[in-house]
Each structure stands twice: as structure tokens, then as C-alpha cells.
Design a protein around this nucleic acid. Structure first.
Lengths: 188, 188
DNA sequence: GTCTATAATCGGATAGAC
DNA sequence: GTCTATCCGATTATAGAC
């Protein structure tokens, strides 16, 4: 934490930022090392130099400081009667912060076109989300996949497709619209 | 309708079927003319010969006999108190038929990674679905984008991600789970 | 640390022979 | 109708100079 590190740091971070943006805009398949390098203002070979293969660049770019286990904790701990609104609050907050927003966009776009990423996401949902939350809240797993599907659809419609009037709605309007739905999914 | 047409037809249809499958599995960006030709067992040049550019192949492959206006009619006409289940029945039926299933898969995968397709989908939803249905049923447009988002999310989770236990659930279980949600979106 | 050069593929599209 | 041959561009990745 004391003193700044020499040279390298800046370029490396530039590449990482460019990667997050490119993967977010185009997904794994659509983004290119060359595109990332161009946006970062460096040579394509440098991207490989710092992060290795495209796979590894992807992992590095998406390694954002959001701990899923903590999120699950936050959700399962609080009062049950407003769990829908609480989840939406967390969700919308993550979509408001640029870093997590880019991460989520990248994941959605990649899941839709890349079998490998889709496999990872499926595993993550089944093992880290649906399983634990189902036990913690004593809900049928099917209910939680319902909630997950609505979260996916909301992200898709509001942030990827940007269909109106949903895209321009305020966060409060979104909470009012989707609150009852998530409350339903989390009520036995 | 009387008598069968000569030669050409078979190969042309083979290419079209292969195109539907490839676009469904990989989306617009991921599918290749060469991949389509290989699956159809023909030369890549033939694909161009019959359908022109990749854009035109895409349009031809997705030109499936589903009239959106008719679907909207079906939904807005019937009784209001079971509209959720009726929509789900139509929806699941379309995902059961191979041709429409491939079409929908292609659209979802392409929307997520292709700005042009996303634009078309956005326009379609706003002008052909949300607008008309909102007027016909006297519902706020925002409600209908909510329903659309849930439809997208259901398709994504069940058919693209195939997350369990949703992917293996029966249609009846899906109707039981999502029925109340769609009913909510379609109730003022 | 940064870049040039290049290998090895793969992509869409076209011209033109048969 | 069907295919061979080919153009031209873009991609990931590596080797190695400076």
C-alpha cells in the first residue's frame, strides 16, 4: 500500500480496462485481442505478454471484486417479507457500477454464444446459487431457477436489447414492476 | 401445388435446414457459410448461389411460418383470467416444434452479439408487441416489457443455459411456476 | 517493457469451368 | 445446377529484435 509501483502498471491496467470494455460490448467470441490492444493503444503482442491466451485475458478481465457467496449471504440473511425488493436493489446497484456492468454484459453475451462459458455459468448457478439458497430459505430449487431466469431476462431486455420503456425507466419503477415477481419466487 | 418441382429443390432445402441449425446453435456471428455448406453436404459457393450474402441466408433461414400479428390476436382475444397460462402454452408449443425452436435460438443468440439483429428485435418488440398489446388490453407498456423480459429469461435459462432443474422440468411444471408471473404482468 | 515480423488458420465472397 | 480455384481480409499466437 506504500509507494507506487514502477512502469508496467499503467499499461497493464489500460489493457485490462480495454478488455473489460471489449468483452462487455462484444462477448467472448466477438471481442478480439487486436481490438483490445487498439483500444488500449498498445501492440497486440503486449496483451499476450501480460495475460497469455484469449481465455486467460477473459478470466482476468472478469475477475471483478464481487464475491457471490457474500451476495448470497446478504440475500438469505435479511427479512423475508421484502426479499424481492432487496434483491432488486442489489441487482440494480451492480448494473450501475461500470466495472460490474461490463462484467455482466460480457457474461450474458458470452453465455449466449459460447458453450464453454455457458457451461461455467450453468455450474455456477446450480452449485453456488440455486443449491445453497434453496437450502437456506427452504424453497424448491425450481423456484430459484425461476428467479434467476427473470434476472437474466431483465438484464437482457433492459441493458442488452434496451427495449423501451423499460430501458429508460428509473430504478424505482423497475423495483415497483419486478418486486412482486421476485417476492413470489422467494415465497414458498 | 400440383406436381413436384425438379432437381434443385432438394439441395436448396438441405442448405436451408443446415442454415437454420447452424444459426440456431451458433447465432449469426458464430455461424459460417462454410459450416452451413458442410452440414448440408454441399460446396460453400452453392450457399451463396442460392441465397446470396450471409445476411440473406440468415433472413431466409429465419423466415418461418409464424405470423406475429396472429399470435398477438390469439393472446388479446381470449379470456383475461387465464391469459398467463395461455401465453405460456403458446410459448412452450413454439419451443417444442423444431423449426420455431431453431429460429428462436438463433434470434436469442444473435440478439446478444449482433447489434443489427438487436436493433431489429427492439423495433419488433416496441412496435409490433408492446404497442398494440398495450392498447388492446389497456395495460401500461412497462408491464408488457416486463412480460417480454420474463419470456426472454425463461428461454435463456431453460433452452440456452439449460440450468437444472428448470431444463428438465415438464411443460406443466413450467406453466405452474410461471403462470402467476405472466398473469401478474397482464393484470392492471 | 515494447514492438516487428510472421506462422498458420479461417472467414466471406466471386469468377468461371463443367 | 454444381464445383474448383482463388482473392482478400482478419484472427490467435509465437519468436525474437531492440
Amino acid at each position: 500500500m506504500a509507494g507506487r509501483r514502477p512502469g508496467q502498471t499503467q499499461t497493464r491496467d489500460d489493457i485490462l480496462a480495454a478488455a473489460r470494455n471489449q468483452f462487455g460490448q462484444r462477448g467472448y467470441n466477438g471481442a478480439t485481442i487486436r481490438g483490445i490492444a487498439a483500444e488500449a493503444g498498445v501492440n497486440p503482442a503486449l496483451v499476450h505478454h501480460f495475460f497469455g491466451t484469449k481465455d486467460q485475458v477473459f478470466v482476468a478481465a472478469l475477475n471483478v471484486p464481487v464475491n457471490p457467496a457474500v451476495m448470497v449471504e446478504l440475500i438469505t440473511q435479511g427479512p423475508r417479507d421484502n426479499i424481492g425488493e432487496r434483491i432488486l436493489g442489489l441487482f440494480l446497484g451492480l448494473w450501475r457500477a461500470p466495472e460490474t456492468r461490463q462484467t455482466f454484459l460480457a457474461l450474458i453475451r458470452s453465455v449466449a454464444n459460447n458453450e464453454q462459458v455457458a457451461g461455467l455459468m450453468r455450474q455456477f448457478l446450480e452449485q453456488t446459487v440455486v443449491g445453497p439458497v434453496s437450502k437456506a430459505l427452504d424453497l424448491p430449487p425450481l423456484r430459484l431457477t425461476g428467479a434467476a431466469s427473470q434476472a437474466f431476462g431483465l438484464a437482457m431486455a433492459r441493458y442488452v436489447l434496451a427495449v423501451e420503456p423499460l430501458a429508460s425507466a428509473t430504478d424505482d419503477e423497475v423495483i415497483a414492476l419486478y418486486g412482486p415477481v421476485f417476492q413470489y419466487y422467494f415465497t414458498a
